[in-house]
């Protein structure tokens, strides 16, 4: 009944991408996403090229494609929204598979889908090749406010603890004959959630006290920043550079 070893989003392998320092990869991801977002809408060939570049990085990373694809379900709400756009938008109509949809909405939806999918896939690739701790160290190195880094660090540290606690509460509920089915079980599950919230809050206070008693005064020791070599920066910059060229080319064609 122990917690899972390692992080579920991380894929253990030894690749050039795994070896890059966290801050290089975080910066590369943010730049890549910005370039994708800046690509003009309706330039579907450009999104195709972005995807191709990302697949290239995936191959280098040695992370199996199904590992990323399975975790893409987090995108579902955006997909639903993108699919609804053509029906909700106004303006000139066009026919798709016998359905009358808004032309502007159709392109907006498709573009949103392309940009969202590329962003999610790239983020998952970062998570698959970088231990959570290295991402935090990278954010620290990129001068993200220390409080934000600390909050994220605690979240990663205690997410599994809260998860395990929730699991034990579930077992204790079921042992008293509770079956979670239908609307009528919701109040019970909600109360469990409330109890878990209070307990996590109290645990937070205890952790804070324990930190204070070991001399915590608002600043955490550094997570151990690793300097990146020029070669590493050049490697990291490759994907965003390709994405920038694609985006610029798309604007050139659009103009």
């Amino acid at each position: 009944m122990g917690a899972a070893h390692g992080h579920r989003l991380y894929f253990h392998a030894h690749s050039p991408l795994h070896r890059l320092p966290g801050h290089c990869k975080v910066l590369a991801l943010v730049t890549f996403v910005l370039c994708v977002v800046a690509t003009p809408s309706r330039a579907y060939w450009a999104f195709g090229l972005h995807a191709l570049a990302l697949v290239g990085v995936l191959v280098v990373s040695r992370v199996p494609a199904p590992f990323i694809v399975k975790r893409m379900v987090v995108e579902t709400p955006f997909v639903v929204f993108a699919l609804l756009l053509p029906f909700m938008s106004t303006g000139p109509r066009t026919d798709v598979l016998g359905l009358s949809v808004s032309e502007a909405g159709l392109h907006a939806g498709l573009t949103l889908l392309c940009k969202g999918t590329l962003g999610v896939a790239a983020s998952l690739l970062l998570a698959a090749t970088t231990e959570p701790r290295d991402i935090l160290a990278g954010l620290e190195r990129l001068r993200l406010p220390a409080q934000l880094v600390q909050i994220m660090a605690f979240m990663i540290r205690y997410l599994d603890v809260a998860g395990a606690e929730m699991g034990r509460m579930k077992i204790a509920r079921e042992s008293r004959g509770f079956q979670a089915k239908g609307l009528r079980s919701w109040p019970v599950v909600a109360r469990s959630g409330g109890a878990l919230f209070i307990r996590s809050y109290e645990r937070g206070e205890r952790v804070h006290l324990a930190m204070l008693s070991r001399g915590y005064a608002g600043t955490m020791p550094s997570l151990g920043e690793v300097a990146a070599t020029r070669v590493q920066w050049l490697t990291a910059i490759m994907l965003p550079a390709v994405a920038l060229s694609i985006s610029l080319a798309a604007w050139g064609v659009a103009a």
Partner: peptide, 18 residues
């Protein structure tokens, strides 16, 4: 589950109602 009553080690896992 009616016949077998299990009391878990941590009462906080068991008690969650107001």
């Amino acid at each position: 589950r009616r016949r077998v009553g299990v009391v878990f080690q941590d009462p906080d896992d068991q008690l969650f109602m107001p």
